[in-house]
């Protein structure tokens, strides 16, 4: 039985904001199936009582002092923008035509 279906891969591509072609979906479905099949053995390890580690260091809530300090100028922040208008990032429409 395959670990992941082509429909699931299409769903993952949508969630990942990747506009993939049909050929790509076929290709990735095959590959992801193999990869998931090989990593799935972590599920078989007995670890009910083991706490998870998200991180290697025992650090919690590292804060910096709440002080004003220099940041990027608008020109610097916008220097790599694909489109700029009136000192702002210009973006495509974010709402549908109907809205």
């Amino acid at each position: 039985m395959s670990a992941i279906t082509r429909d699931e891969v299409a769903h993952l591509a949508r969630l990942s904001r990747l506009a993939l072609s049909d050929d790509e979906l076929d290709h990735y479905a095959t590959q992801l199936d193999v990869i998931i099949g090989s990593v799935a053995r972590v599920a078989e390890i007995a670890a009910e009582d083991v706490p998870p580690s998200s991180h290697a260091l025992p650090l919690t809530n590292v804060f910096r002092p709440d002080q004003v300090r220099p940041g990027l100028t608008p020109q610097q922040a916008l220097s790599g923008a694909p489109a700029v208008e009136d000192e702002r990032f210009r973006v495509p429409r974010i709402l549908g035509e109907e809205a």
């Binding site: 993952l12 993939l20 990735y28 990869i35 670890a47 580690s53």
Partner: peptide
């Protein structure tokens, strides 16, 4: 692309505990 989709899969509800959560325990 493979890794983004694999990660999205491992973090999705229904698979999170079996994959990402379990991997953190292995860690």
């Amino acid at each position: 692309k493979r890794r983004i989709m694999l990660g999205t899969y491992a973090l999705s509800s229904g698979y999170y505990d079996a994959y990402y959560g379990q991997a953190q325990k292995v860690r």
